[in-house]
Nucleic acid binder design. Structure first.
Lengths: 124, 124
DNA sequence: CTTCTAATTTGACACAGGTCTAGGCAAGGG
DNA sequence: CCCTTGCCTAGACCTGTGTCAAATTAGAAG
């Protein structure tokens, strides 16, 4: 059942190591790429956005499915991808399943590509 | 020959509209997803990193090729993907071709997923 | 002009990934 | 108990993509 994969990159270690400080190692790149791949899809990007701005911070799958011209299995597939990447988490309450954002992983990704270094800020 | 595609999203309009302010529209998601797809690959992530932290802010292709166990055509392919997404730009000087980062697009992407809103900061 | 090196383009291949239909499992109501 | 609703899984299909070998273009040097 819960085939939940732990977030590949722990966000605590992401204080100040953006893309341009020093070259990414092969293994670092291999860990980070799947995170970006998870959001590199229009449907998943919108799903993430819908969940993130929903009041209460969590959203029922039924609300998400209704926002797309896609079948429920397809939405379920995309939610699974996001969850396995560690970007969202979920819980069943009665008949419905609710999803919410894991902000730490998003923040880690943002910091990596963010303009936090001379090279990326264009002064290099 | 320069089939350079202009950056899909103009970074100037990216002051304060992260993922969680309001749901992404279908067209916004369709424009943004290719940007993340461009960096959703270990090789391209490392390429971007190598270019970003290279002294002078630009890197010769020969230096990039030497950093991977991949053939030159493959590196060239990945550079093309990054360039068409607007993340990097290039220029030929004599025998060699140099690449550099376009920091505005990276910054735009970072801001989108960054912890700039209550919902993503975990207070929602 | 010829030759050498640097980088890209082309074509082919195998694998990954998005979508659907069909089927299965859980929870609630007769 | 059976039936309905909500969600997920399994399998199939087709497209997209990463990789390489071979061929091509661009510039520099003899």
């Amino acid at each position: 059942m819960s085939k939940q994969v732990l977030p590949i990159v722990d966000a605590d270690a992401a204080c100040c190591a953006p893309l341009a400080c020093e070259p990414l190692s092969e293994s670092e790149a291999a860990e980070l790429a799947p995170l970006f791949k998870a959001i590199a899809d229009p449907v998943r990007l919108r799903l993430l956005s819908l969940i993130a701005c929903h009041e209460g911070g969590e959203t029922c799958v039924c609300d998400l499915t209704a926002a797309f011209d896609l079948t429920p299995p397809t939405i379920s597939h995309h939610l699974k991808v996001l969850k396995q990447a560690g970007l969202i988490d979920s819980e069943r309450r009665g008949t419905w399943v609710y999803y919410w954002i894991n902000p730490a992983v998003l923040a880690r990704m943002s910091a990596l590509i963010g303009p936090a270094s001379p090279a990326l800020a264009g002064t290099g």
